[in-house]
Design a protein around this nucleic acid. Structure first.
Lengths: 339, 339
DNA sequence: CTGAAAGCGCTAACAT
DNA sequence: ATGTTAGCGCTTTCAG
């Protein structure tokens, strides 16, 4: 190891005390501009690198933000939904600007969470998707600044959050199918009794049917894991339902899986089934036929989340903020007009 | 913040010294089993959580392993290739077992690397894909234990590495096409002058043609970014080449993109074009037609990489290890037999 | 504007 | 088997 240079070394070389060096490094307005410049210059020259561990121990602040994924492991999240990868990329850019680093952690164990949050001295956390009770307990315990993304627990009034207008988005999706002449419109998503997100989307779909006086019965509601693989499998079940002409799908991954399933059975889309997705993941514009879907602006979402989090970090008393981001229907080629 | 309990608190409560507590916590065989048990119990009862920052400052070891992605940002890597997500998931599991945490960092800036590696006190690093010169410089500087994954610089004899038998794998792919009667077989991959990986694959392909006396000319070599989107676009170029009946593709993402491109133009696969991919990503078995491809065992790869890295961490003098993992051709439905 | 010194929580000689 | 103590590198009062 190239021997580490510390603020002591710099101080010695300059004949001053380490405190002054620290001030200069931290922009504390206690040191003259000339001195400051001199210090910074020699620090640079000596190849000084700030030791965050020491800073952290001293200040109690680690400049680490944890991105908590309620999954068993990272790859599960990434494979399940490309959304995570995109969000993380954008989010990280936002916090790096402020000098923070991102720790991505799949944590689904109370003990581990505690060990990790406290043990590593995490300054703040972002929670994606679901918000287990023990997370909340831990956060409360440590008064952790937190921002929730796409979390819809009834009792999240204690944390800032950013989520999307699932209801309105799916309403628009169903409405579009109706406007294209469809009467038998099914909905597929994760278990709506467990997934609040998908329940919201389902409600939007139902509202559209109701508003346009399109009959609904429970045989139009399907449950399927929102993954490509499960979509492929689900397709063979759906194909048998000759009455259904259109499908509102709670996730693009799922929609694309279903489209693949149809193709495997030589069923054309949108001729045999009109389908609209949700998310507008990258592939949606590239598959054939391209997928009509409800799009969310991931970049804005990430920057809002970062903004809210920093508000809390910089001022723990700052008020809770909740934003529901609007969605846009992107019309492509997976819906056909019928009469 | 719930006031933190330290080893001093534990020591005081038990009427012993912090050193003993530290020994007990660290399994140092200097403290009697009974005492140890008593200490551990009260630590637990008091809600003690080990402060890694302090440990780190004291020992100079952070128990952090950096996963370096030579990309501009994380999402770029994840979106470009599902392989990364999978590898990371497996790798993380392996290091967690040893009590290490993973820091995933997209670093493509010399200064930042240095700041980060030293500043955060990273213990070791894994490098994925490409190995920029300044990485090496930094590693040498800090005598960092490193393992390279899928890196093929000529001068990497200083680091353990695990890579795959690209040459043999692609040889097998091309051979399979030849055995199915194809004579005009093209190759598409990233720029073979810049991507050593794709060059190796290309060489394997060429060898197969040569061994079987299949004519080759440079019009059979195509360059295309290994992404889904670029594959879609590339397809329209390839379609015009009526002479080509089969394609060896350096990445599944690309292959699937091309398949989509063909479908958009109403060209059937494998009737119009036989295609074999590389990687066997999750989607490959799910697309239609399912993709014949060269598979690598990502899980083994990750665990080997972790093993090599720990060898270096635990014994800096341990010898360099290099493994080239074998590949397997997975035969599915994207290749047709012709005569 | 600069310096001295205590302390963040833990480890690891070195003593006992 | 257990206690003492000096750091690890930095921040931050408090004094000058």
């Amino acid at each position: 190891m190239a021997k580490k240079v510390t603020i002591y070394d710099i101080a010695k070389k300059l004949g001053i005390t380490p405190a002054t060096v620290s001030y200069a490094l931290n922009n504390v307005p206690k040191v003259s501009p000339e001195m400051r410049k001199k210090i910074l210059d020699t620090a640079m020259k000596m190849g000084y690198v700030r030791n965050y561990t020491a800073v952290s121990l001293s200040t109690g602040k680690s400049k680490i933000i944890a991105l908590l994924l309620p999954f068993k492991d990272i790859s599960e999240a990434f494979l399940q939904n490309p959304f995570y990868g995109e969000f993380i990329g954008f989010f990280e850019k936002n916090i790096k600007k402020e000098g923070y680093d991102l720790f991505i952690q799949p944590l689904y164990d109370e003990k581990e969470l505690e060990l990790w949050l406290v043990g590593r001295g995490v300054d703040a956390a972002v929670v994606l998707g679901t918000f287990p009770d023990f997370y909340e307990k831990s956060f409360k315990n440590h008064n952790m600044p937190v921002v929730l993304v796409d979390v819809y627990n009834a009792d999240n009034k204690d944390y800032s959050s950013v989520c999307i207008a699932d209801f309105e988005g799916e309403f628009r999706a169903a409405e579009y199918l109706i406007q294209n002449g469809h009467k038998r419109i099914a909905f597929v998503g994760a278990d709506i009794n467990n997934s609040i997100v998908d329940k919201r989307r389902y409600d939007g779909y139902r509202k559209a049917l109701a508003d346009y006086k399109i009959p609904y019965d429970d045989s139009l509601l399907f449950k399927c894991n929102p993954t490509f693989a499960d979509g492929v499998e689900f397709a063979s079940k759906l194909i048998k339902r000759k009455d259904i002409t259109a499908l509102v799908c709670a996730a693009d991954t799922l929609a694309i899986g279903i489209m693949n399933g149809y193709r495997m059975q030589n069923k054309q889309i949108p001729e045999c089934l009109s389908i609209v997705g949700f998310d507008d993941i990258q592939s949606s514009s590239l598959v054939y036929p391209s997928l009509t879907t409800v799009k969310q602006d991931i970049e804005s979402k990430a920057s809002l989340a970062a903004k809210f989090l920093f508000e809390k970090i910089n001022n723990p008393e700052s008020s809770i903020r909740t934003v529901t981001m609007e969605l846009k229907l992107i019309i492509r080629d997976s819906v056909s007009k019928i009469n």
